Amino acid sequence: MEKATRKIIHVDMDAFYASVEQRDDPALRGRPVAVGGSRARGVVAAASYEARTFGVRSAMPSVTALRRCPDLIFVPPRFDVYRGVSQQIRAIFAHYTDAVEPLSLDEAYLDVSVDRHALGSAKAIAEAIRARIRADTGLTASAGVSYNKFIAKLASDQNKPDGLCVIPPAAGAAFVASLPVKRFHGVGPVTARRMEALGILTGADLRARSLAELHAHFGKAAPYLYGAARGIDERPVRSHRDAKSVGAERTFETNLSDPAALHAALARVADAAWVRIERSGMAGRTVTLKLRHADFRTITRARSQAGPITSAAHFLALGETLLAALLPVPDGVRLLGLTLSGIARGDAEPTQPLLL
């Protein structure tokens, strides 16, 4: 018996935090806005599309963002407001399907293989959801519709902002082949650079490599990459999935050994991690530091608190304590990572560290 084809929608709000701020403050509309950070320090949590035209992106240091866009307006985040809007959006999802897998406050997978309201197609359901979001929240969302999660997520980014892209099963492999691998979910900047060095720039290049070759270069990620290059992804939409950890890590172009430079680098990593922690709406009580030596030896150290860690300053302070205990590192450090775990509450999927 032939397996039924899934109908998956990936919904991604357009510049969510910044769009909420522009919606609520007319003076910000049409202007370059960065949520989070400040003109002096910190990391951008989100950027409006006007700011993105200057190359401003989330997880970018504020000073870098300001260099790229001198007229950038920094706005403090209002996570309670964003969570409230996210709840409105999830109520809309629930009207169309019970199979909803949130990834963060502003994006989710939906399995609409069962057409609850007889709208006729997954595309029609996606259009209805986007229209309801606009009517109920005043915000726009982009959506990707396909037969698996990997392609649906790629498709949602294809026509942003306020766009819809449908990739049917017959077109999946060709669609993936045409895209740069750096757009693939799970391929961060470091992996993308390794692929580029191997001559793998597109999905077609990746598909030309054997599973054995991918294992040799990318280890346990090889099966995922091999399937993705062929438009294959069997992961189901999982409605209930407890988050285990959220974090960020950075690989340095030059190994660092100076304690001041290492603490400064850790502050950047902590800022980027906290953006994701706040975005996920989660709280945890354990901070884990990851440190990779110049010779690739990797060690981790963790510290737990009795209650949840609720501020970026507390999160960084625990990380700094863990780092200080490992100094000096005469041979140099090539990677630092900082992660929050022991999640007390959350509804996002287990998150790989953000690669800076």
Rank of each mutant, 00 (worst) to 15 (best):
A216L: 11
H117Q: 15
I129N: 08
H185F: 15
I9Q: 03
D71N: 14
V85P: 02
I133E: 03
P236G: 06
Y109E: 07
G138K: 02
A65D: 00
T321Q: 15
D242N: 06
S38T: 12
R83V: 05
E213C: 09
L266K: 11
R209T: 01
P168K: 14
G342I: 11
L164A: 07
T286L: 13
R67W: 08
A344K: 13
D106R: 06
I129S: 13
D14V: 07
A197W: 01
A248Q: 03
A313E: 13
D25E: 10
D162L: 09
R183A: 04
A216S: 15
V269R: 04
T321E: 14
H293E: 12
G55C: 01
I299Y: 09
R39N: 03
R238D: 09
H217Y: 11
S280N: 14
I343L: 05
G284Y: 04
V75M: 00
G281S: 03
Y226P: 01
V246Y: 07
A141I: 12
R276E: 15
A260N: 04
V75Q: 12
F175L: 06
S62P: 12
A141Y: 01
T300Q: 04
S311C: 02
R130L: 05
D157L: 12
A273M: 09
Y49Q: 09
T64Q: 15
E101T: 00
D14T: 07
D24G: 05
R292Q: 11
D14W: 08
A99I: 13
D157Y: 02
G231C: 00
H314T: 15
R39A: 11
S304I: 13
P259H: 01
D258C: 09
R297P: 07
R52K: 15
G227W: 01
A122L: 00
G342Q: 05
E213L: 12
A348D: 13
A317I: 03
S245D: 01
E349N: 03
A204N: 00
L103C: 01
G55A: 05
A108I: 11
G144Y: 09
R276M: 04
G337M: 05
A108L: 10
A229F: 00
P26Y: 00
L66G: 04
G163C: 01
P189D: 02
G36V: 04
P189R: 15
L119Q: 13
R57I: 13
F175V: 11
R297W: 10
L338H: 13
K182R: 13
F16P: 03
R83T: 14
P189Q: 11
A294N: 14
Y17C: 10
L28F: 02
A47I: 06
V329C: 12
D205W: 00
S146Y: 06
Q352T: 06
G227A: 09
A192F: 12
I8R: 10
I9H: 08
G284T: 13
D205V: 03
R241N: 06
T5N: 15
I125F: 07
P169K: 07
R268Y: 14
Q22M: 14
S156R: 08
T137I: 00
L139A: 05
R235E: 09
H293P: 07
S19L: 05
P308A: 02
L291C: 06
G84V: 02
A65Y: 00
